[in-house]
Amino acid sequence: MESRFEGQTLRAGAVLAERVSGIDSVAHALAYAQAVEGAMGWRAPPRARYLRVILAELERLYNHLHYLGHLAKTTTLKVAEAEGHLLEERVKQINARLTGSRFLRGLITPGGLRRDLDISGLDKALDAITADIDSYLLRLENTRSHLDRLMTTGTLPRQVAFDQGATGPIERASDLDRDLRRDHPYANYEKVRFSVPVQQAGDAHARSLVRMEEIHESLAIIRQTIGRTKPGEVLRFEPMEEPDPQGEGLGWVEATRGGLLYAVHLSADRSRLSRVKIKDPSFSNWRVFPFTVEDSNMMDYAINEASFGLSIAGADR
């Protein structure tokens, strides 16, 4: 995929970035856009930066709900699987009504957003599913057969997680307190209050707990952001800062699955891309996964794998 970016226009690059890993469309487009903005010295307008936060958290929401449904499938909770995937579907339908795309594609571009969004109905739409999400998470955490399969399964010690470069919910479940949204804020994350859930156990249960808490945080972030988003332009191309003299930029995003990095190198006239380098979180986490498998029960393999929530396309860039 990286070589496909070469020679593309800056705008077409965003379309391509959305298609590197379909279920991380927002994260990829956002990391790419921020990298180009860094190289060009652009800064997206405030409204666009707030809307980017909303898009990124909606993406986290549907991905985490899918994850929990899938995890419940591996512990043979059929109804919990169905309920998780139904909640994911409801978020995707909210996405579609908001943006025209179930994967929130076609909006993020270097300089801001391609068009403005009407977020007036989003609050109500989320209210309608929040109670269902809350009771779903609570019920999962009160199901003994489910917890029994998760606890002590696929334990990833803190030191191994650190040494092997685990990222995202995987590292946070192994007591590594890192989150790009808080540590190196982008978009408008410095203006919203949220906590970064961390667990110590490092097992499949800890990984699912981190994601459950992130679901609550995502909903809270979206609500805060809706309240703070003021009308205004969403696309701006004037340089607000000194452009990078080499035409290089770095963009980073805390994607659903962890830290995602884009490094871009622009052509001499800064109209096209000459090189793009992608570091997807799944690439890091696939590396870590084998360290949890050794000496484990065969029947736990599927559960352990599901608890990592890895994406194949993300790893193959």
């Binding site: 379909g22 995937h85 139904l86 579907e89």
Partner: peptide, 21 residues
């Protein structure tokens, strides 16, 4: 068979099995 997709199609194929569809 996933012959090199971005997993967007896979996500929608899996959605076919959710209770809505």
């Amino acid at each position: 068979v996933d012959a090199g997709s971005c997993n967007g199609c896979e996500s929608e194929l899996q959605a076919l099995l959710n209770p809505f569809y």
